[in-house]
Write a protein that binds this DNA or RNA. Structure first.
Lengths: 160, 160
DNA sequence: GTCAAGAGGTCACTAAAATTGACTATCAAG
DNA sequence: CTTGATAGTCAATTTTAGTGACCTCTTGAC
């Protein structure tokens, strides 16, 4: 995002650096723990799974991906035994996507790795300062979401 | 990045939300200002251009993209008159990539849009709090860079 | 000097992923 | 019981990413 690189990376550049380096570290660590058959792009699904199920269309909205992309990701993850589809009793058009046992293990592993990463930053910045940073990041993310609420075309994969 | 989405998005998810929504807002605004022939992925080049030129290989390192990707992006941007290649006098293997006049206009437009976006967040959080947030984000980005310094394979396009 | 190792960049090819459009089934409102 | 919208899938196309080979040139060792 267009800084002249003369010293002051903008919000977008920083977000990109954080996203991609976190993503790499996460998936490297996951692979070492045996989850070596998933890629960062599957994060669009894995990052939003819930034990009580979630619809593909909601994954599409949350991750900013086309529903077709979610469909193929869920296909892949189903084949790899991370998720399963079950009909939604409340709406016969819909299917709910649930994590399998392996999916749950992955979610826990990923959460643990992310805690480690964030702990490292908390140690570097100070716990209080990091908490303050993360709260601000949450607010910025929320505000940005609103700002672009008008347009709705997907952009890219989500971090996972 | 695997939160159970029960209330606490992790650093990766938040970074992704910020990146993609900023990216969309930026490129929508750029398109409205006449820069409608570039896509977010070209940001891997545009975000790192310098008036004194930069090498393709350095763009690859900075953006985390394969050098072949940078090559095609520069091809495209050269065709669209945003950049031009000139031989590097210091190394006859290398070429330096410079912004053209149009490229400079794009860079200024993008910088202005990003200032507007960041100003909006600064208004929402308070100028001081936002400055503190951004400083923390810079540090987190820097720390993450170090953490993944061992592995070096590209991951995704950079924000732009 | 000149030779080996490696960096900078491009080309050609293959694989993966995003994007589009159409289509079925279902729901929800009137 | 019609109309319009939503959930999901299929199929086909276009874009983009990833690999390997290749040539030029630089660097450092001899």
């Amino acid at each position: 995002m267009s800084k002249h690189h003369t010293g002051d990376p903008d919000l977008g550049v920083l977000a990109a650096q954080v996203l991609f380096s976190v993503q790499r570290e996460l998936f490297t660590a996951l692979a070492e723990q045996g989850f070596d058959d998933i890629q960062p792009r599957t994060g669009a699904v894995l990052a939003y799974l819930r034990t009580d199920g979630i619809r593909a269309s909601e994954l599409a909205r949350a991750s900013g991906q086309h529903k077709q992309v979610i469909g193929t990701l869920v296909d892949d993850l189903e084949r790899l035994d991370y998720v399963e589809r079950k009909p939604d009793p409340a709406d016969r058009r819909a299917k709910l996507i649930y994590p399998t046992e392996r999916g749950l293990l992955q979610m826990e592993a990923a959460a643990s790795i992310m805690r480690t990463i964030e702990q490292r930053h908390a140690n570097a910045l100070g716990a209080q300062e990091y908490a303050r940073f993360k709260e601000a990041l949450r607010r910025v993310a929320g505000l940005q979401r609103e700002a672009r609420a008008d347009s709705q075309a997907p952009e890219h994969g989500q971090g996972g």
